[in-house]
Amino acid sequence: MLEVAGIVAGYGPMDVLQGVSMSIASGEIVAVLGSNGVGKSTLNNVLSGIVKPRAGSVRFMGADITGASPSAIVAAGLSQVPEGRRIFPNLTVRENLELGAYRRAGARMKSNFEHICDTFPRLRERLGQLAGTLSGGEQQMLAIGRGLMAEPLLLILDEPSLGLSPLMVEEMFNLVQRINREGLSILLVEQNVVQSLGIATRAYVLEQGRFALEGAAADMLADPRLRQTYLGL
């Protein structure tokens, strides 16, 4: 459903991504791994239309979305739950969720809203609360819930477990697996390498602007040499 070819992107004179190609098939969980500052979020933002690539192409569901506006990309069914959550702190939980359906799936807002409240009972208890007053974990649930409100076909999750307690991290990975089983394809950027590989179908390792390694997640977990060189385990 997603084909990325030869993406070059960066800021100012610097190219952070120097020719990145990848693909995601329908129903997959694909993990993108790599050390801090290597360009994972930059890649996500290229896919979401926030950073314009200098070269290369992005195709989604058969259509060329290279350089398309973020709103057009959301409308096409590609949503991102960004690093740092980026929820609307001055709006209530309910309003945050409603805005998730701003560009897509507005007609089914009510039923999606109910479904997401069932998935995250803690959000249902706090619908009238300002989002900025939620705990970090609750904010992360809200960010994911808001992303799901658009009924995306592909959901990008950028470090969803950041700042969560170990128990919550476990819960987060279970959740990612659960929404994947409901039919959603997922691009997962994570620092929790072992847990990510545990639920992913395939994985890419980003190094110095390129994918240094790609393959089935299970193989990566099993190969001791790869684990040592690329994953520092």
């Binding site: 979401s48 709103s71 959301v74 959550r85 805005l99 658009a150």
Partner: peptide
């Protein structure tokens, strides 16, 4: 940024 990402 959050607004952009929901398609506003």
């Amino acid at each position: 940024r959050g607004a952009q990402l929901v398609g506003i």
